[in-house]
């Protein structure tokens, strides 16, 4: 079986108020030395009987059409097949 793990992040340069708030909370907890926190989304998709190439193609299509908004977000995908390939 093939799985795709998709990381969706705000494009660099776009203010992430959630990340900023978490950074302040970390500082308040005494966790020092963190320069920046950016929060994104993680989406896992499992595929049925498709090849790895096809899974990659479908994942890109899903990201471009629905999962990420190209105006504000970037995405990165990792494909994992059951045999570890």
């Amino acid at each position: 079986m093939i799985s795709a793990r998709i990381h969706i992040t705000l494009k660099s340069g776009i203010l992430d108020p959630q990340g900023k708030t978490v950074l302040h909370a970390l500082e308040n907890l005494g966790i020092q030395g963190v320069d920046e926190v950016r929060i994104g989304k993680l989406i896992d998709m499992d595929f049925g009987e498709v090849t790895k190439d096809r899974a990659e193609e479908l994942t890109h299509e899903a990201c471009k059409k629905l999962l990420a908004n190209p105006v504000i977000e970037d995405y990165r995908i990792e494909l994992v097949s059951e045999d570890g390939g």
């Binding site: 203010l15 108020p17 504000i72």
Partner: peptide, 10 residues
């Protein structure tokens, strides 16, 4: 054009 994002105040 553009997008709507989380309020800066959260």
């Amino acid at each position: 054009p553009g997008a709507l994002m989380r309020n800066d105040s959260l």
